[in-house]
Amino acid sequence: MSYVLGLDAGATKTLAMIADYHGHIIGTYTAGTGNFQVNGIEAARNEVKKAIEGAIKDAGITKEDVTAAFYGMAGADRDKDFEYVHQVVEPVNPAPKMSIENDAVIILKVGTLDGVGVGVVCGTGTNCIGFNKKGDRLQVGGIGDLFGDAAGASYIGVTAFKRAVRGWEGRGPKTILYDMFCEEIGIDRLIDILDFFYRGERGIVKFSELTPLVFEAANKGDQVALGLLREVGEEMGLTVNVAIDKLFQPDEHVKVVIGGSVAQKGDNPAMLDAFREKISSHHPNNEVIVPTLEPAFGAIFYAYDLVDVPITNEVINNLKKTFRDN
């Protein structure tokens, strides 16, 4: 039999899936970050290789059985970045037919199947990429906070930390985030985080992992947490509006698909409500979609396209039924 490989490499994890041509997922494997911008080309390649080989082993097949592969890669932004990403993927790719795109593109595919619309990532980082019916492609943001990005778990965690400190000192409104962060990190005062830095243990504190606490605080009515989530939602809505303005006609119906761990697993509606409101205020004829499927499903869909396998409702239902997150 023949199989396809779909892979989603983000700033935190890399998920690989193996599926047959009928939509049955027979192998999965999760490795570390496959984003070369985070840990370099060689380390990213090792994680991508680990995910591919793990999924193939889990499926009980050989790499020669994989006919097509699609890679959704965080960090695939500029043309030069694609050169680096090819250095990550090509040496470990098992399939004769393969293609690479940014991870925002596989999120768009999950929600639209035809890949037309705007895809937004809100995971560890953020990105926004759109395609119109003519195939024109546009990316808005996605390069990092130095270049104006203001969304994703890393941004939310760092910003919430700063606002917690400011509130404790009196330079801003008080927030329950201060005590929550102290307990999570295991320190009495947030300023004592400096001790980790001085000991060369900066990596012990992962600010992105503070983001679930922001949602928890928002659920308790904390205004600082709620305000931050609304700001992030509005910022992502702004990037979508820019993409729609440049790719679509004013009255054209546009599908907007938002995915990633923060967007899909955040358990307070403030961020997504603000996201929808920002888009609708500028482009009323839109449809915001938050997929229930992992973004890696979009990579599977694109891999099917490479070998002309139609993505029927039966195939999609089989994928849903047979997926298991390891």
Rank of each mutant, 00 (worst) to 15 (best):
S2P: 07
L7H: 07
D8Q: 08
A9N: 10
G10N: 02
T12P: 05
M17S: 08
A19K: 01
A19M: 02
Y21R: 12
H22S: 15
I26H: 05
T28I: 14
A31N: 14
G32K: 13
G32I: 00
T33H: 06
Q37E: 13
V38W: 07
G40F: 04
E42D: 11
A43H: 06
A44L: 01
R45L: 11
R45Y: 04
E47H: 07
G54H: 04
A55S: 04
K57T: 15
D58F: 00
D58G: 05
V66A: 08
T67Y: 13
A69C: 07
G72M: 13
G72C: 09
A74C: 09
A76L: 09
D77P: 13
D79Y: 00
D81H: 00
V85F: 08
Q87Y: 03
Q87G: 15
E90A: 14
P94Q: 05
P94N: 13
K97V: 01
S99T: 05
I100K: 04
N102W: 08
D103C: 06
I106D: 06
G111Y: 14
L113P: 12
G115K: 04
G117Y: 11
V120T: 03
V120A: 02
C122F: 07
T126I: 12
N127W: 09
G130Q: 07
F131G: 00
K134E: 14
G135K: 15
D136R: 10
R137C: 05
L138F: 00
G142E: 05
G144R: 10
F147D: 00
A150F: 03
G152H: 11
V158K: 15
T159D: 11
T159Y: 09
T159H: 06
A160T: 01
G167W: 15
G167D: 15
G167M: 15
W168D: 09
E169N: 14
R171P: 13
P173D: 12
K174S: 05
D179F: 00
M180K: 12
F181N: 07
F181M: 08
E184D: 13
E184P: 06
I185K: 03
R189C: 07
I191T: 12
I193P: 09
E201F: 11
G203K: 03
G203F: 04
S208Y: 09
P212G: 01
F215G: 03
N219W: 10
G221T: 07
D222G: 04
D222C: 04
D222F: 05
Q223H: 02
Q223Y: 12
L226M: 04
G227D: 13
G227E: 13
E231L: 04
E234L: 06
M236H: 02
L238S: 15
T239V: 00
D245I: 00
K246H: 03
H253E: 06
H253N: 06
I258V: 12
G259E: 10
G260M: 12
A263P: 11
N268W: 13
N268Y: 15
A270K: 01
M271Y: 04
L272N: 11
D273M: 11
D273L: 15
D273F: 13
E277L: 15
K278E: 09
I279A: 11
H283V: 14
N286I: 03
E287R: 00
V288P: 02
V288E: 03
L293W: 06
E294C: 02
P295T: 15
A303G: 12
Y304V: 08
L306G: 14
D308R: 02
V315E: 01
L319R: 03
F323H: 05
R324E: 13
N326R: 10
